[in-house]
Design a protein around this nucleic acid. Structure first.
Length: 167
DNA sequence: AAGATTCCCAACCGCACTACT
DNA sequence: GAGTAGTGCGGTTGGGAATCT
């Protein structure tokens, strides 16, 4: 699926190219244009922006995202700040590959809950809904179709109860 | 070697819901 | 109760890296 979009960024590197996948903070050197000529910057976050956001959260806690730009001078919308914190900067976010156990839980919960990524994320320590959604769409959806046919109903029920936290 | 295609994931968008005035 | 702002969610897009031809 080739993309036929215009390039509006000029990054020196990409998160994926870093050793700590997704955790790289030394990224872009220029930015996407403002939204519709608007007031908010778009595109990948820079190290400087991450620092400002983390500084804000250290002082004010997370939440009240719409105030971040006013207080820190960040030219980012509240939604963008929230997403950046939740998916990347929060110390509780686990980076790196999903373990077999995590994948099993995701598969079971997806069967139970469907695409309720935030609910599924709530059952997996250190993983965000976005991470799980991406992992599902790129890896597990295919795998699951194969596994699905071989599911042992008794085995499945046991893990289903375990997954939703029932004894 | 180089262009084309696919993979992967961060970030954006639109909508829904809640809280506040 | 109506209007507005803030927040959260799922679906989708964008774009560099990796792989293929």
């Amino acid at each position: 699926m080739p993309h036929n979009h215009t390039k509006d960024t000029n990054y020196i590197s990409h998160p994926k190219s870093s050793s700590s996948k997704g955790q790289d903070l030394s990224l872009p050197v220029s930015v996407a244009p403002m939204e519709g000529g608007g007031k908010h910057k778009r595109g990948l976050w820079t190290l400087e922006e991450d620092k400002l956001l983390m500084e804000y959260i250290r002082e004010h806690g997370n939440g009240r995202w719409s105030r971040v730009s006013k207080i820190t001078g960040l030219k980012r919308g509240g939604k963008s700040c929230r997403l950046r914190w939740i998916n990347n900067l929060s110390l509780t976010v686990k980076k790196g590959n999903f373990s077999k156990d995590e994948e099993d839980i995701i598969i079971r919960l997806h069967k139970l809950l469907g695409n309720r990524w935030s609910l599924i994320a709530g059952r997996i320590r250190g993983r965000t809904g976005n991470q799980i959604k991406n992992h599902w769409n790129t890896h597990l959806s295919k795998k699951f179709e194969i596994k699905k046919e071989r599911t042992n109903p008794i085995f499945h029920r046991y893990h289903w109860l375990e997954a939703i936290g029932k004894p």
